[in-house]
Nucleic acid binder design. Structure first.
Lengths: 231, 231
DNA sequence: AGAATTTGACTGACCAGTCAGTCAAATATG
DNA sequence: CATATTTGACTGACTGGTCAGTCAAATTCT
């Protein structure tokens, strides 16, 4: 049966079948665990494995081993490899954006403070965690999984753009900036994040990058570029 | 033997090996071709295939078919899959950067004109061509091929950073800008290019992106942010 | 003819996903 | 409380399929 999507492990629905070999030599059996916790363990393992090897090259058996279970167990929690990736994105990204959306509503401070706070979030919640790899994964392999890209667009990109446009409108309304570039091309705001999640793994050995420094410089640059003036 | 790296197809140096089945009907259909041209054809096919499926998922047999040869032939020109990818990067990127480096030396116009010219190059020579996929490929799979990442850093990234820093110094010397942010974080200049090479394939269907428009807005934004004033 | 080049069947390794069987915990019964 | 029974999470050998890389035979060129 194998539910996948999100339920707990489906009830076993095996038919009787024929007998088979003798008792296996087997290794330690994983103790039964709260389904929620097991699910979390598998997701964490998957994030690590996918991050290290990429979606295509990651082996389900390694994900299982890392989660401390056998391969078959993973399939009790997720339909297939793709569903596992999807679960990953859903679980890992939502909290970050959700938090920022809630913080924007009714934020009292200046746009500069707002942006600096968000940068801080993104650095500690994404760039400096394994979640960083999710972005890299989407860039590298998303195109071959259109429904995954669609899902990512809805859950992450569209929400992110909405958030950025809202910030821009707020800043314009408060008279803090004068340009509408950020409204037309909110992508320019997050572009350096792609550099941030990418650089260390690829080129850090040759030329380390001060990510928070770069992102602060970026805020400075765009605010001035947009015609910033203190209110 | 299989030379790979760059030579022409190596002289056949197969060892004797053991006997095998009965006489096969095999044929050698592809017209003998100038090794240079054949090499080009294989590289072009590889770029297309790698771009569409990613390095890991691309099949050597498809590369061969696309180049109009049999699988074995590819191995006469490239040691293995990785060498093929490396050849790709070396061949495709160098001309673009080389051109820009030569144009910078002794450029008479303003920095704004210089940047706009470079943006134009990058759009027509990279973003709007299959070369775009090389960037995506490096982001997505480069981490698993450290020697490739090293090669890419030397050939592309370091050169690009050098170029950008030179542009910044020139602008500062000419009194066109006042900030040194571009010197400290030249990555901020190319960040939107990552968005540009990424967006269409992943999200174009949901929200098309006016790439030249965005890049022009970017130039505008950073020039103003850096304290631009006409000289 | 003889050398250079191309071919594609073949090998060996790898891996996603399956499913018959196992066993520890939960529940029912004495 | 102790013992029998049931449940379903967990296991891992196995299947079916894929694909990088090889090489003897076929073809083309000089």
């Amino acid at each position: 049966m194998a539910r996948g999507k999100d339920g707990k492990p489906a009830a076993s629905a095996q038919k009787a079948g024929k007998p088979q070999g003798e008792p296996k030599k087997g290794r330690a059996r994983a103790p039964r665990l709260d389904p929620q916790l097991r699910r979390q363990a598998i997701l964490a393992a998957a994030l690590a494995e996918f991050g290290e090897r990429g979606f295509t090259s990651a082996r389900m058996e390694d994900v299982a081993a890392r989660a401390g279970v056998a391969k078959g167990t993973v399939y009790l929690y997720f339909e297939d490899k793709k569903a596992l990736f999807e679960g990953l994105v859903r679980e890992a990204i939502d909290p970050v954006l959700g938090l920022m959306e809630r913080q924007l509503a009714g934020f009292p401070g200046t746009t500069r403070q707002l942006l600096e706070m968000f940068i801080g979030h993104v650095v500690t919640q994404v760039v400096e965690t394994p979640r960083r790899d999710l972005v890299r994964l989407m860039i590298g392999e998303g195109e071959r999984f259109p429904d995954l890209a669609d899902f990512y667009f809805d859950e992450v990109v569209a929400r992110g753009l909405r958030l950025l446009r809202a910030i821009n409108e707020r800043a314009l309304a408060r008279g803090e900036i004068t340009s509408d570039i950020g409204l037309r091309f909110p992508q320019l705001f997050i572009a350096p994040l792609l550099v941030a999640v990418t650089w260390e793994g690829l080129f850090g050995r040759h030329e380390p990058l001060d990510v928070p420094g770069m992102l602060n410089a970026h805020v400075e640059l765009i605010l001035r570029g947009l015609g910033w003036r203190e209110t």
